[in-house]
Every structure is written in C-alpha cells, then in structure tokens.
Nucleic acid binder design. Structure first.
Lengths: 191, 191
DNA sequence: GTCTATACATGGATAGAC
DNA sequence: GTCTATCCATGTATAGAC
C-alpha cells in the first residue's frame, strides 16, 4: 500500500507545494517565478501548469493548510472555560504551528502578495479577529493590542530572525510559549 | 531660501524615494516595478533612470537612511553606563525609528529582496549583532534570544499588523517601549 | 504527467531628442 | 529633467504532441 506514487515522498502535487513554499519563504511570492519552481522540481513550466491553473492557485494552495490549522487551533481554544486556559491553548497551538512551519509563518503574515490575496478573499481578518479576541478579549486596551501584536511578531520572527535559526524546535517552542504567556500576563494553568 | 525646487516639497530625488518607500512597503520590492514608481510621480521610467542607475540603487537609497539612524541609536546606547540605561536608550531609539517610519521597518526586516541586498553588502549582520548585544548581552541564553526576537517582531508588527494601524504614534510609541522593557525584564531607570 | 513551442505582456535598462 | 522609442530578458499562460 505504498503512498509512494513517484520517486520521492508524496504526490507530485505535494512536492510542488513543498518546493513552492520553500521558494516563497526565501524569495517572496513576487520574487518567485514559475520557472524557479519548475527548476526546483526538475521539470518544465508546463508541467507545473498541469497541476495548477495559475500562480495564484499555487499561493492559495500553499497558504490555506496553515490557515486551516490556525482556525482549528482557535476553535479548540474557544472551547476552554477560563481565560488562562483559552490563552494557553491558543498560544500553544499557534507556537506549534509556527515552529513546525517556521519560514512559512512570515510569508503568511508579511508577504504583500499573500496578504493581498487573502484580503481579496476576506479570509484573513475573521481569523485575526478571533485570535485577537482570544488573546486580549473583546474590548482590548491599546496596551493589550500592542502585546498581541508583539506575540504575532514573535511568531513571525520565528521564521525570519537569524538569531533564532540555530535553536532547535523544542526549545524554540518552549521559550516562545513561556515568553508569550508572560507578555500577556497569563499564569501557566496547572495540568 | 526656498527648499522648494519643484512643485511639491523636497527635491525630485526625495519625492522619488518617498514614493518608492511607500510602494515597497505596500507591494514589496519585487512587487514594485519602476513603471509603478514612475506612474506614482506622473513621469516616465526614463525620468526615474535619470535619478538612479538601477532599481537596486533605489532600494539601497530607501533603506540606508533607516539603517544609519539605527546605527546612531546603537552608538548612543553603547555610551550609557548601566545595562538598564543602555537597553532603555536603545529601545527608545528603535521604537522612535519604527513608529516614525512604520511601514518601512517591516520592509527592512522581512522583504526578501532587501535582505538579500543587505546580505550582499554585509551591512545588516554587524548592526544586528550590535543591537542584540545591547539587548541581551554577549552570551545570551536561548530565552533571552527569543525575547530579543520578539522585540524585533514587535517593531516589525508596527508596520504590518492591522490591529496597530488605528493607534496614534504617541501611544504606540509609549506602549511599545513599556512592553519591550517588561519583556526584557528591565526596570525603567529614573530620569 | 511531462514535453516543446509559442503567444503576449511586462520587467529592467539604454539611446538620443527636447 | 523629462520625453519617446526601443532592446532584450523574463514573466504568465496556452496549444498540442508524446
């Protein structure tokens, strides 16, 4: 029952998406051409167009799984009873997502082409709203908003900041979570 | 003694740089064409090429003033005696720079084209090193590195995060500084 | 699924007139 | 300083053979 339809792991589509994600994070979406993606896979542009109808489709396909995961995290967090538990669950999930994707997180939050695409589909703001609400409540003070933004910034830095590159996933995850909780003045709930 | 050489404020060169900075922050460097810059100014591409020899030159000219300002901030901070004073001076300067530039700060920290250009000229890492040293000392723990990265992330978020857009410069500056100092466990020195 | 070939637009960049 | 005109490479995208 091999999942292995091709020489390497995953379907051709999956390999394409992995290559695209890597290139997007390194050169930005606008700085990545279909030719570069094709070269990375050792195929031609036409082969790429067989899998996706347009560059925009590729961007969309790269980005939505992460967004879906973040939405799941938000959903789980919303089911917790106390604020401390909600924040802890949310942050834990966000940090996990950020660390296991690392460089993709910054693409999601700061690549102009991605932001424009998401704005077009009105798919980012609702999620952002949900997450902000979970983090700092429905009517946050300016100070709380700045804290929330710094937490987002920290997740973004995960993928960009060269100082964090040497850290292994595990300690990065732990410190990000601890520091974020401290930033939001939330005590770790006992488990 | 009019500084006004043209219809609007500043020299033609300055207006060009302002337009470019705005477009870079909105569309990214790779997503901004010389045509877009020319259109923004109501001139042709050739007129743009009269001021700068290449697109790279424009990027460089947009970015270096900010880098120079950050270097000045670092220099001033290094002259303080206590760690608390150094951190406070540094952060105060960084926050000022970030708030008065807002959107340009994220270009500097996350635009792939800019990062590549700066890497090519080896002009970013030394400054980053200096700032990191001021923030968390010469041999920082992993936790301290994460804190430093979150501070950077906060400065980046200043320009990107939609939740911060409504805040006026003054309260943004104040909260960013306070929160960053708390993050780094530095008490505000009395003045 | 992948290829060659190609269409068409736009990108960066230059030449030379005004 | 700005213009028109142009060059050439590259970009997205499509057509049709294997």
């Amino acid at each position: 029952m091999a999942v292995q339809r091709s020489q390497r792991a995953g379907t051709a589509r999956d390999r394409l998406l992995a290559a695209a994600a890597e290139l997007f994070s390194r050169h930005g979406v606008s700085g990545t051409s279909l030719q570069m993606i094709a070269d990375e896979l050792g195929v031609t542009k036409a082969a790429v167009y067989h899998q996706f109808q347009s560059k925009e489709d590729i961007v969309w396909a790269v980005v939505t799984p992460v967004l879906d995961r973040l939405a799941e995290v938000a959903e789980t967090a919303e089911s917790r009873r106390s604020r401390a538990e909600r924040v802890e669950t949310l942050l834990s999930g966000l940090v996990d997502a950020a660390v296991s994707n690392r460089r993709l997180m910054s693409v999601l939050q700061s690549d102009p082409a991605v932001l424009q695409l998401l704005r077009l589909h009105s798919t980012l703001s609702p999620l952002e709203e949900r997450i902000t609400r979970l983090l700092v409540g429905p009517e946050p003070t300016d100070e709380a908003l700045v804290c929330a933004a710094m937490v987002s910034g920290g997740l973004m830095a995960t993928g960009i900041d060269p100082r964090l590159q040497p850290l292994d996933d595990d300690s990065l995850r732990r410190h990000l979570l601890d520091t974020s909780l401290r930033l939001l003045r939330v005590r770790r709930p006992s488990r």
